[in-house]
Design a binder for these strands. Sequence first.
DNA 1: GCGCTTGCATGAATCGTTTCAGTGAGGCAA
DNA 2: TTGCCTCACTGAAACGATTCATGCAAGCGC
Lengths: 341, 341
Amino acid sequence: MARMVGIKDVARQAGVSVGTVSNVINRPDLVSEQTRTRVQAAIDLLGFVRSESARQLRAGRSRIVAMLVLDMANPFFVQVARGAEREARAAGLGVMLCNSAQDAAEEAEYLSLFAEQRVRGVLVTPADPTGANLAALRRREIPFVLVDRSAPVGECCSVSVDDVAGGYLAADHLLDKGHVGLTYVSGPMHLAQCRDRRTGALVALKDRSLPEDALTHIEVPRLDVDAGRDAGARLLALSRRPTAVFCANDLLALGVLQALYAADVAVPDDVALVGYDDIEFAAAAAVPLTSVRQPAVQMGRTAASLLLEETGDDADTHTHQRVVLQPELIARESTGHASRR
Amino acid sequence: MARMVGIKDVARQAGVSVGTVSNVINRPDLVSEQTRTRVQAAIDLLGFVRSESARQLRAGRSRIVAMLVLDMANPFFVQVARGAEREARAAGLGVMLCNSAQDAAEEAEYLSLFAEQRVRGVLVTPADPTGANLAALRRREIPFVLVDRSAPVGECCSVSVDDVAGGYLAADHLLDKGHVGLTYVSGPMHLAQCRDRRTGALVALKDRSLPEDALTHIEVPRLDVDAGRDAGARLLALSRRPTAVFCANDLLALGVLQALYAADVAVPDDVALVGYDDIEFAAAAAVPLTSVRQPAVQMGRTAASLLLEETGDDADTHTHQRVVLQPELIARESTGHASRR
DNA sequence: GCGCTTGCATGAATCGTTTCAGTGAGGCAA
DNA sequence: TTGCCTCACTGAAACGATTCATGCAAGCGC
């Protein structure tokens, strides 16, 4: 590969100094019309592309914000990322999207990578239950915003959806349908999402004076369709098969649904099922899935804009915020809701 | 933010020269045990993180490969990306994943960004029908590999799945079930995927001595669930409603399925339906979807490994390759295949 | 004509690494 | 002792942009 053409080559070609070329690119108003066109011609002729690494070396930080999500295979996070990206790009920043796959070690590796890249900031849905990764981030003075997780006030910014409320919505909806107990299928309880949604369900039980043990719990190690299938199998093996199931996300619910379907258990007649996230595929499932909708795109947008505020020019006036959005129940056939026609 | 600690600070702290610190980091075998531990201690003490931009400025190129896919909301591409990432990271490179959203302008913007970043290479599923974006890439001498699209031999590397064969599989399967005509639902025909899958279907018709016009075509502008719903509505409005439908991908098929379901048209009894990609959600659909499976992860892995070969140390011996993988039909209930029990 | 301002252009210094030609010190053979 | 080699380390020169103090010329008012 031929040597890259640099700003110097352009300067020589146009017969001006390097400073002037730089000005043409970055502050064109400081340069006379005539010079500007001459330099621009040289740029086009030589096919000059400025080196981002050189600029950021000088600037001390990059023009990229990183986003680290729990599971890229989950369309919910893709939505969140879309919102964040839109916001960041509007501000002239690039987004680097990465997948921790719910693994703390993977997460740590990515965070190191981000540190080396001197990213502007990080949008992260933490996977590390110990919090050590976030502590490292703070130690390195890299601004970050928690996504889909709320932070103690003042520590950092966070944008989340009220998971207790969401859990309540789901459970309340099932209890409305006459069920007197329910099974909660979740991923690992060290994930706040899984914990809080259960808490919400418990509150709903309590509001109806039902005992805590009216909620049985099936915990699987991951939050995906495969794990959902496993959970479904375990459900079916229970001595007293539940009549109402609430899953911590739609992927789990789809897996459970498949397992029930394969075992000829009718949904919603034998078992009512509620998911969480309301991903696009929930409505297209074997039985359209009742689900708790989260404002995913808005969450991404808000998170990005908080980060931009924190890392922007008026960063000194920034105070950490804790934004909590509200979920919404979308009732469909999996809980006997007549959605057709 | 306090000034970043650099290699110089470490050197001063450890009482050695900058060159030695660099050696400790990059070629530890050149440094004596004793010095190494002293430098390492200084690094840990000061919390030194090396600046990736400075390294790449020196190296002339970055340690990142970019991946530009047509649609991140399509789990198929997420799978491909997963394969590519695994391969790249095994080779010590990072992956920057971006979404052109089937938009040529967006694609062009990303490619410029990649050029500024001096990425090692690009894995791209082109969205630009004119080929201008790829031409620009070639002009800038950025190595790239086409993904899910085959290239004329010798121009560049490509990894694709035989779409003609896939189209044939789908159509042949439907014709096997006794249908004597079918409707093809696709995205824009400037996408090779959409064209080739239709070609395959036509071959299948011809093999059975059926006329070309036994294939009707519904074209929608995008390849997502929404567009599928529209296509479904258009299907239902046809004067002679088809009995067999083949969709260019699973998202379209899921959309069509929803539309049929909402109109009380039974699948597969009234209409048989075949999708493409065999995404995870195909099996969990309202009626489990017969689909043409593509080896997505393998495609990503192969593409990344071709790119690594092209940009590696033995790049001079590299010749462009055109890898074509084979698809596989997965029969499920949407074509009357009894999958239960 | 003198002093001032304004508008443009200059080019050296800087960012934080890597690399490489040198510098010494010490060991070993003749 | 001399010459030669190896080993460990040094420090200056890149890499390619941005920035900023500086210079120069033209325009203006008095």
